[in-house]
Computed example of a mutant assay.
Amino acid sequence: MPPASPAPPTQPPLALDTAGIDTALGRKGIADGGIYKFSIPRKDTIDDGTHVLPPALGLTTGINFQPLGNNKPAINGDFVMTAPEVQKVIQALRKGNIDIVELHNHSLTDNPRLFYLHFWATADAVSLAKALRPALEATGLVPAS
């Protein structure tokens, strides 16, 4: 008789208003190891001059909510943007009191040219999600389904 399959891992409960976060961001996140996260690909095709680059290579905007208690998370992640989107995202994050950690690029030959902005903050979960929404809307991401 073959050995029994291990039980699928259970997710720890998230002490966050995930429904409120989803509503504020206009997207549905997923629980993964105690973190509530979003990974949103760009709608445009990215290439390096010879190959189309799939979103799985890190060409997504990632947002993570790590519960700290009392519906307060630490958030972090990074936005993937084109040059015309950079200032719009910076302004939206600053308006929402979200700290900008760094802005950089990864490749020399990507088309369109992409920039990555890392961010961090702690506050009420839904307030942070509401502050992130304008930054998401300033970038060319795949629309929410």
Rank of each mutant, 00 (worst) to 15 (best):
Ile100Pro: 15
Ile63Pro: 01
Arg94Val: 09
Arg42Glu: 05
Leu128Glu: 14
Val86Asp: 01
Ser39Phe: 07
Tyr36Asn: 10
Ala129Cys: 05
Asn71Glu: 08
Arg94Ile: 09
Ala19Cys: 03
Tyr36Ala: 11
Ile21Tyr: 13
Ile40Gly: 01
Pro6Ser: 09
Asp22His: 06
Asp47His: 08
Pro54Gly: 02
Gly20Thr: 11
Lys95Met: 06
Gly96Lys: 03
Gly29Phe: 00
Ser5Gly: 08
Gly69Val: 01
Gln11Ser: 06
Ile30Lys: 15
Gly140Thr: 11
Thr10Ala: 15
Asp124Gln: 09
Ile30Gln: 15
Pro3Thr: 06
Pro12Cys: 02
Lys88Ala: 09
Leu59Gln: 04
Leu14Thr: 09
Pro55Thr: 11
Asp22Thr: 03
Ala121Ser: 10
Asn97Cys: 04
Gly33Glu: 10
Ala15Asn: 10
Val126Gln: 09
Asp22Pro: 01
Ala7Arg: 04
Gly20Gln: 02
Pro143Tyr: 10
Asn97Lys: 13
Phe79Lys: 12
His118Arg: 07
Ala123Lys: 14
Glu137Asn: 14
Met1Gln: 12
Gly62Asp: 15
Gly58Val: 04
Leu68Glu: 07
Leu108Thr: 10
Gly26Thr: 11
Glu137Cys: 03
Pro112Ile: 15
Ala15Gly: 09
Ser107Ala: 15
Glu137Pro: 00
Pro67Asn: 11
Leu93Asn: 14
Asp99Pro: 07
Pro12Phe: 03
Ile30Asn: 14
Leu14Ser: 12
Ala7Cys: 01
Gln87Trp: 04
Gly34Trp: 02
Val52Phe: 03
Leu59Lys: 02
Leu114Gly: 01
Ser145Met: 01
Asp44Val: 14
Ala24Lys: 07
Ile90Asp: 12
Leu59Gly: 01
Trp120Phe: 12
Gly69Glu: 11
Asn70His: 11
Ile100Val: 12
Ile75Val: 15
Asp47Glu: 11
Arg113Asn: 10
His51Val: 05
Thr18Lys: 05
Trp120Met: 08
Asn97Trp: 03
Arg133Gly: 05
Ala121Lys: 01
Phe79Thr: 15
Val86Tyr: 02
